[in-house]
Nucleic acid binder design. Structure first.
Lengths: 226, 226
DNA sequence: GACGGAATGTACGAAACGGTTCAAACATGC
DNA sequence: GCATGTTTGAACCGTTTCGTACATTCCGTC
C-alpha cells in the first residue's frame, strides 16, 4: 500500500511497541458504534453499518469486542466516561453557595444539551433496564463525585444560613438531572406535540433560566424566615 | 358500515369460544404488542413473540395492522389515548390556584408512575425522533388540554395575586413533565448508579413532595413582594 | 531473512425474522 | 340452507444479519 498511511502509529512509544495502531482502531470503532447505537438502539443497530462507518472492517469489531453486546457495553462505558470527565471542567470552589448552585444547574443543562448522543445511550440503556450498566463498576464510581459536589454546596449554603437544611443531595441531583435530561431525551415527542418554541436558542435559554430559578427557589430559605 | 348491529357476536357466551370477534382480537393484539414494544422497542420486538402472547395468530396481526410499523403506530396512539384519557379524572375546578397546581403536579407524578409502559413507548418513540408520532394528528389534539388546564390555573393565580405573571403554561408543562417522566424513564440507570433509596414508597413520596414544592416555589410571588 | 504472533481482508454459513400463500372454517344475508 | 365475503391457521419464502473460517499481511526478534 502507500507509505503515507504507514506513519499512523504516531503515539509516543511509551511501554509497548505500537505496531499498526490497535488503539486507534479501537477508538475508531468505538466512535462509529457509539453514533449508530445512539441513533438506532442496541437491536436497531446493524454491525455491518457500524463497520461501514469505520476505517476498518467488521472483522476487527469481533476481534476487539467479541460480539455486538460487548461492543455496546464498551460504548456505554466510554460515553459515561467522556461525559463525566467533561463535567470536571466545572470549578465551583470559592463561589458563594447560591452562585455555585445556579452555575451548576446551568452548566448541567448545557452540558447535557451538548451531548445528545450520551443521553440517547442512557435512554437505550433504560429501555434495557440498565442490564449492561449494572456490570460496569466504573460507572458507579464515575458518578459519585456529582453527589459530593452537591453535598458540599448544600452544606456551605446551610452553614451560611441561606439554604434549607432538609435537602438531600441525592434528591437534588435527581431534580437537576430530570430537567437537564428530559430537555434532550424528550425533545422529539415534546416538540411534535407542542411545537418547538421551547427548543430554539431563546427558548432553551428561558428553560435553563427557569430550571435555575426553580432549583434555587426550592433550596433557599425564604427571605421572611431568615 | 353499521356501528350498532355488528357488536353482537362475543357478548352472550362468556366461556364459549366466541369464534368471530374482530374488535376483541384487535384489542388482544394491541395489548400484547404494546407490552412487547414497551419492553423491547420497535426493532427489538419480535412479531412472533407478540403473536405468541396473543390468543390469536401472527396472520391476524398482518390482517389487522398491515405490517410491523402499522402495529407499532397503533400501539403508540392507543397508549397516548389511554393515558391522556386517564388524566381527565382529575378535577381541579373550584380549587384555589395554589392547591390546584399542587394537586396537578402530585397527580401527574403518580399518574406517570402508574403507567411505565406508556413512558417506555414515549422513550422508544424519542429514539426514533418521533417519526411515527408525527403522523398521528390525534395525539396533538389529545395533548392540548393539558396546556389549557395549566393556563387556567396560572391565570387564576395571577388574578388572585399569588402567582407570577411571567410564567408560560407551556414552560410549566415542560417542567412538570420533566420531573414526572424522568422519574420513570430513568429509574433503571439512576438506581443502578446511585442506589434505589429514591424509588421505594417513602422515597417516591419524598420526591413527589419535592416536585410540588419546587413548582410552587417557582410560580409563587415571594411573600415579601406581595 | 525466516519465524511467530498480532492484525486485517474476504467470503460465506446458519439462523432469525418479517412477511406471504393457500385453503379451510366461519357468520350472515338471501 | 346455500352463496359469499370475512376470518383464521400452518407451512413456507426470501432477506437480512450476526458471527466465523480461512487466508493474508505486517512487524519485532532471533
Amino acid at each position: 500500500m502507500d507509505g503515507a498511511s504507514r506513519q499512523a502509529p504516531q503515539r509516543a512509544r511509551e511501554d509497548g511497541p505500537a505496531r499498526r495502531d490497535p488503539e486507534g482502531v479501537r477508538r475508531d470503532i468505538l466512535a462509529a458504534a457509539g453514533a449508530v447505537f445512539a441513533e438506532k438502539g442496541l437491536s436497531g443497530a446493524r454491525i455491518d453499518e457500524i463497520a461501514a462507518r469505520t476505517r476498518t472492517s467488521k472483522r476487527m469489531i469481533y476481534y476487539y469486542f467479541g460480539d455486538k453486546e460487548g461492543l455496546y457495553r464498551a460504548c456505554l462505558e466510554a460515553a459515561y466516561e467522556q461525559v463525566r470527565r467533561g463535567e470536571e471542567e466545572l470549578d465551583l470552589a470559592g463561589l458563594p453557595p447560591e452562585t455555585a448552585l445556579a452555575r451548576l444547574v446551568a452548566f448541567t443543562f448545557d452540558h447535557h444539551r451538548r451531548h445528545p448522543d450520551f443521553i440517547r445511550m442512557v435512554m437505550v440503556e433504560n429501555i434495557h433496564d440498565a442490564r449492561h450498566l449494572r456490570g460496569a463498576a466504573s460507572a458507579r464510581s464515575l458518578n459519585r463525585p456529582a453527589i459530593d459536589r452537591l453535598r458540599d454546596i448544600l452544606e456551605r449554603g446551610r452553614r451560611a444560613g441561606v439554604f434549607r437544611p432538609d435537602i438531600d443531595p441525592l434528591e437534588l441531583h435527581w431534580l437537576i438531572s430530570a430537567l437537564a435530561v428530559f430537555n434532550v431525551s424528550n425533545r422529539a415527542t415534546f416538540s411534535t406535540l407542542f411545537g418547538d418554541a421551547l427548543f430554539d436558542e431563546a427558548g432553551q435559554a428561558r428553560l435553563r433560566e427557569r430550571a435555575v430559578e426553580m432549583v434555587l427557589a426550592l433550596v433557599r430559605i425564604p427571605q421572611e424566615h431568615r
